[in-house]
Design a binder for these strands. Structure first.
Lengths: 202, 202
DNA sequence: ACCTGAACACCGTTCAAGT
DNA sequence: ACCTGAACACCGTTCAAGT
């Protein structure tokens, strides 16, 4: 999984999976996910596009690599003694870790992925829920709900960021605030509330 | 917005926005979103790729068109008298309407979008929440939470479907069930629970 | 063993020209 | 006014060849 082979003889490797993933991450953080192309990674490394395929199976594999090395950077908080508080801390760590790089939802949308390097968060959450008195089944369901909520939040936040980056007022806000009071009285009443888009955890 | 112009003289139109959107929808439902290319739409209509741009601004605009005509098909349930029940009915309508075409999360991930033809669902939910005694602010927040939860569910479901379509067991399930009991005791305990992936509403 | 160059089969979109 | 053809600037990836 790390080096392609123990490298017995032959031409010495100039690239490595680590280097390729690193270059990909640099590109994403500098120019956004949409700038991540195999050809750009190659340019970043000063090599031909095809050299990359020696160290990474395909673009998806590369993306998982970046995801994994990102997850490794999520800071591990000093956990409280109270189980309930511990769960919240872990949720916050997960949420903040992901929110920092909101492009991950693009990857998440692609397929079901999980970074092994972040399993400790899952462990803390599930353990905390059990310590709160939940059954194993309830804990599993609880984790699923938390994950679902988090993914939803990331996705919405990303959409809003995108249009914000374009300098336009979000399409959703525009539609919801300019609603016809005759047709949609309740929506018209709450219209002023939408602008106050705050951020919260689970 | 509908026809490009009232069409005063000149060459008669063979295509229309309606036809283009219809072809796009047919392609998506037959072959999946990844098959939706401008060139494929053109082929479906027996025209040149560029003819399409006369009726649709760009690919995003086309996608919004499909989304809108899909939303128009969401059936409107006979609503209960109890406000709480009404909210649940509307949530279910929204969820089921979206779940039927799970590719919409791809579009949602692209940017913040909303189909005007489905605002009635939003109206019912917000009105119902207010009737339940929530303040306008609470109702707005409540709707946001429901939407977030729904989007998260769709996204996860889509990821699982994708890998299921490939015939593989989901990556997430694989990782979570093969976890090291030493390192992650709580995860090992709940491991048997993950397989039972059921479906629920908010 | 590792890397390169040329090539394949695609994209979305612009632009000038036809009818 | 509507449509077409050719072209541009891209993609990810395969394959045969170089070192």
């Amino acid at each position: 999984m790390e080096a392609p082979t123990p490298s017995r003889g032959g031409r010495p490797a100039r690239l490595s999976r680590e280097a390729v993933v690193g270059a990909a991450r640099a590109i994403i953080e500098r120019d956004g996910v949409e700038a991540l192309t195999m050809r750009n990674v190659a340019r970043e490394l000063g090599s031909s596009p095809m050299a990359i395929y020696r160290h990474v199976r395909d673009k998806d594999d590369l993306l998982v690599g970046v995801l994994d090395c990102l997850a490794a950077d999520v800071p591990r908080p000093r956990f409280s003694n109270a189980p309930r508080e511990r769960v919240l801390q872990a949720c916050r760590a997960m949420h903040d870790g992901l929110a920092e790089h909101d492009w991950v939802v693009d990857v998440l949308a692609q397929g079901d992925l999980i970074a092994r390097t972040i399993l400790w968060v899952t462990e803390v959450i599930v353990a905390g829920l059990i310590d709160c008195g939940l059954s194993e089944r309830q804990a599993a369901d609880g984790y699923r709900a938390i994950w679902q909520f988090t993914v939803g939040e990331l996705m919405i936040r990303r959409g809003l960021r995108r249009t914000a980056a374009l300098g336009r007022t979000p399409f959703v806000v525009e539609v919801l605030t300019s609603v016809d009071a005759q047709e949609f009285p309740a929506l018209a009443r709450v219209a002023p509330q939408w602008a106050a888009a705050r951020e919260r955890d689970s």
